[in-house]
Nucleic acid binder design. Structure first.
Lengths: 162, 162
DNA sequence: TCCCGACTGGGCAATCTGTACAGCGATTCA
DNA sequence: TGAATCGCTGTACAGATTGCCCAGTCGGGA
């Protein structure tokens, strides 16, 4: 899937996103064209989903993160999904196994605001029950680099070339 | 916090990350220096957490996403956190209110692999109980743009200038 | 043994970035 | 009312980077 050089490229661009292709090629001791080609391929294969800047909701004033699991009425998934997607504070929704039907990641400005958001959430009559977990602190921040290295290592037996 | 122009900048760079400051200034009909200053400020204030490319675990072969809530032994939070951070498949860990103590977001190559990851997880003796939810599908993908617009709108009463 | 894909090293024109500066309108404050 | 300040505009310039092209080399697979 990806090899060690890909991993080093991803790592470098994650740590210092603004360096550019040329500087990256210098750091990695490879030709510029190589870095460029690798980046193109990583983008084409979807490994790099986007080069968009990452926005931090907390810095926007949304300091509270919570996870809500929703039990919804049979066959109402579509309409509930539409309802949820209309609430800006809902950042992510997954269908899940287990007791709940949907798991949402939501943010709010503070605990009072969270109440408002949850009221918005459950405003849909197809939502039968909800249970909310408030994230008190982030122990391991969002990260993918370890995964990248792991993926590169597992394909080490079949290196790209050289 | 942020105004409409900030929101438009974030939106533009989210949709077309590679356009560059100059092209962005043309699209938004403002001076290049303005876009540059805004971007600098957004970065400084942390609204833009990073310009790093976003890596998609699924494209790396980690097609399964799951959420695990862990009950841990009193006062073992530190050591458990250290343990979790050593597992690459653990992408995110939060301390939470409610029945569980920790909520982890994990990925795995497939369901069998997920079992392996969970075995790794619970390998820590300080973890008392776990409950895992497998994400079957993503109903609302990770997103922040609606939030950005909402934040910009809410500060509309106090625009930056002009 | 031949072919092909990947990497190298080089070159070129076009473009962008970083930075600086003066002017201007609006807001704040004395 | 006047002075200082702040953000935006438009402009300028040197330096660096990008996108693109090419010939040559290397290693693996057919």
């Amino acid at each position: 899937m990806i090899d060690g050089l890909d991993a080093r490229i991803l790592e470098l661009f994650t740590r210092e996103p603004r360096i550019g292709v040329l500087e990256a090629s210098r750091r990695l001791q490879v030709a510029r064209g190589t870095v460029q080609a690798r980046l193109d391929r990583l983008r084409d294969t979807g490994v790099i989903a986007t080069f968009a800047p990452t926005v931090d909701p907390a810095a926007l004033g949304f300091r509270v993160t919570a996870f809500a699991s929703l039990d919804i009425r049979q066959g109402a998934r579509e309409s509930v999904a539409a309802h949820l997607s209309r609430i800006p504070e809902v950042l992510e929704v997954h269908t899940i196994t287990g007791q709940g039907d949907l798991l949402c990641r939501i943010v709010a400005r503070d605990n009072d605001d969270l109440q408002r958001v949850i009221d918005d959430l459950v405003g849909d009559a197809d939502i039968v029950r909800t249970s909310t977990l408030i994230a008190l602190s982030t122990v391991v921040g969002p990260r993918v680099l370890p995964l990248v290295e792991s993926a590169a290592a597992s394909s080490a037996n079949a290196p790209r070339t050289r």
